[in-house]
Design a protein around this nucleic acid. Structure first.
Length: 578
RNA sequence: GCCGACGUAGCUCAAUCGGCAGAGCAGCGGUUUUGUAAACCGCAGGUUGUGGGUUCAAUUCCCCCCGUCGGCUCCA
């Protein structure tokens, strides 16, 4: 028997749960029940939908099994024996049928429950602590993830080494809810969605729009400084454009129905690339013109199935921080390295330190010359190595039109988010017959690379909100300071202070309400405003402000000029400090 | 799209068995002029997501649709 570890316990727990479900529903058909990184699940085909009462019954039965210390017994059976044992379990039969001929078929038994399973399992059910697991919810899941196959009921459970770890996990779930960008978006008055006006479409309120503007301004400056030019292109294009690009063939299910303009079909854009290519083709391009690096904050619309929409993270209209690089084969390595460095700097500027790259290579069905693929993939690999980044390879995970690097960041709660993608495209240059004139005076096909760094501004904002729990670093905060006069007689000086700070390019608001100072502080605190500048008789006399941070730290009286210098310095350096 | 749960005031939530839809916060008006996380009094706020059905009577029971949430699948 192997040493019991968390994964084994979780996997075993899924068996214990399946046994409990069978007791409750003798006709239940079992699918699969693996361990996952927070616990386990098991998929069932049941005669009726599960209720929360069912969950607690199942949980009680599991606890009985744990108390009984039922042992897990492994045995190996022939294919015929396995078919006989699971003759009433169609999903198991399918699994058996799909096992390779030479595979040993093992079953595990605890009590009177038998399951097809590779194992390993814990020695007996008593290894699991009855107070260290919880059944969380029921969800629908397709058999084998295929939407054409039956929809099963999946029960999710979480399991840990002990009660303390379970409690810590449940507490983390609460923290996730507290930080949920949809909740913070409303509480901080950043954005809204309007079902009556269409699902998955974002409305930016003044404060959210302010944050977005700051991000965009920074982004533009970085791009100009980094050797990019910036484009603006239309939001719709005639069917010719999408036929030529191949989107109507390859991407149609994500595109909206056409609109009729003077008898012609126009489509709202799901991508920006064809427009950039048209600009490329307005001139004969020479190798001397390359590389061209063209960026655009391009707003695109893509159809997403109603069930997948989620706040800012998954929407139907969004703005990509897109760019296309057109270059020669000789330039490709330098360009890729440049893009990668540029991406890392951008992500780090927003406070993301943990960045994990994934390299996706040629899939079985792909277009383009193998030699091109090799060169492109090699340039991606070299760039990653050049930056000394540990990366994972997703063999065959590239798009049919080119290999790519995706960068996923880890947020303050340890969750991974894909933001950056750097993709080669061997398809569109071909389709649009893009060329440049080389040193030999002949026409050549340029390399084309798509890249988005922040991904989309909508999702990026969602990630930022959750990463910072709504408490944006000073340089991004929509309101950086709230001036809080204690009594009406301090209002005039408070207005002077506000004017001075605004003249210094700080974002300041004045609380002129007739609330007590305590209430004003509370309001500012809940709005997660970095600085609360309290003004009373003392401050008026000293030409100062009393500075309270949203961290609850009280800095005491500081001369107005000194406060301005402090804040400006921290904004300038994108500091996380206040 | 599919499975399940849900939809009551701007927000968070009540309303017994089908019997006059209610509270806190926010908002508005007034009083209060305050030293580091909530002053006091009052007012207003609703076609109970939409449409239909059952009933003397529907927030409550049934059906369609829309949307939200948790998943499946897919992706920026």
């Amino acid at each position: 028997m192997e040493q019991p570890n968390l994964e084994m316990m979780r996997h075993s727990a899924s068996h214990i749960m399946a046994a409990a479900v069978l007791k409750l529903f003798p006709d239940a058909k079992l699918a699969i029940g693996p361990a996952i990184d927070t616990g386990f699940y098991y998929d069932f085909d049941l005669p009726r939908p599960l209720t929360t009462e069912d969950l607690s019954k199942i949980s009680d039965l599991m606890k009985e099994s744990i108390k009984a210390r039922q042992s897990f017994e492994r045995s190996e059976v022939s294919r015929a024996e396995a078919m006989e044992i699971f003759k009433d379990q169609p999903y198991k039969l399918e699994l058996i049928a799909d096992l390779p001929e030479d595979e040993t078929i093992s079953i595990y038994r605890q009590g009177d429950f038998v399951d097809l399973c590779r194992g390993p399992h814990i020695a007996h059910t008593g290894y699991i602590k009855a107070n260290a697991f919880a059944l969380l919810n029921v969800a629908g899941a397709y058999w084998r993830g295929d939407e054409k196959r039956p929809m099963l009921q999946r029960i999710y459970g979480t399991l840990w080494n002990n009660k303390e770890e379970l409690d810590a996990y449940l507490k983390q779930l609460e923290e996730l809810e507290r930080r949920d960008h949809r909740r913070l978006g409303r509480e901080l008055d950043l954005f809204s969605l309007h079902e009556e006006a269409g699902a998955g479409l974002v409305y930016w309120h003044p404060k959210g729009a302010r944050v977005r503007t700051i991000i965009e301004d920074f982004w533009r400056k970085q791009h100009y400084d980094g050797g990019y030019d910036i484009l603006y292109t239309p939001h719709i294009g005639r069917s010719w454009l999408w036929e030529t690009s191949g989107h109507l063939v390859n991407y149609r299910e994500n595109m909206y129905s056409p609109m009729d303009i003077d008898g012609q079909d126009y489509y709202i854009k799901p991508m920006n690339c064809p427009f950039h290519i048209l600009i490329y083709k307005t001139q004969t391009r020479s190798y001397r013109d390359l590389p061209l690096r063209w960026a655009e904050l391009g707003t695109v619309y893509r159809y997403e199935r109603s069930g997948v929409l989620h706040g800012l993270m998954r929407v139907r209209g969004f703005t990509q921080d897109d760019a296309h690089i057109f270059c020669t084969p000789e330039q490709i390595e330098d360009e890729i390295l440049g893009v990668l460095r540029f991406s890392l700097n951008m992500l780090r500027a927003f406070g993301f330190e943990q960045i994990n790259p994934y390299l996706a290579t040629r899939p079985p069905k792909a277009i383009g010359e193998p030699a091109q693929w090799d060169q492109a993939t090699e340039s991606l690999r070299k760039a990653l190595q050049g930056e000394r980044l540990a990366y994972e390879v997703d063999e065959g995970g590239g798009a049919f039109y080119g290999p790519k690097i995706d960068l996923k960041i880890k947020d303050s709660l340890g969750r991974e988010w894909q933001l950056t993608t750097i993709q080669f495209d061997f398809n569109e240059p071909e389709r649009f017959d893009m060329t440049y004139v080389g040193t030999d005076g002949k026409e050549h096909r340029p390399y084309m690379v798509h890249r988005a760094l922040l991904g989309s501004l909508e999702r990026f904002m969602g990630v930022l909100i959750e990463h910072y729990a709504g408490a944006f670093p000073l340089w991004l905060a929509p309101v950086q300071a709230k001036v809080i006069p204690i009594a009406d007689r301090h209002q005039e000086y408070a207005r002077q202070v506000m004017a001075a700070l605004r003249a210094a390019d700080l974002r300041v608001e004045l609380d002129e309400s007739s609330e007590r100072m305590n209430a004003k502080i509370r309001t500012a605190q809940l709005a997660k405003i970095p600085y609360m500048l309290v003004i009373g008789d003392r401050e008026v006399a000293a030409n100062a402000v009393s500075v309270r941070l949203r961290t609850e730290q009280d800095l005491g009286d500081i001369p107005v000029e000194a406060f301005i210098a402090r804040a400006q310095g921290l904004v300038e350096s994108h500091s996380p400090e206040l």
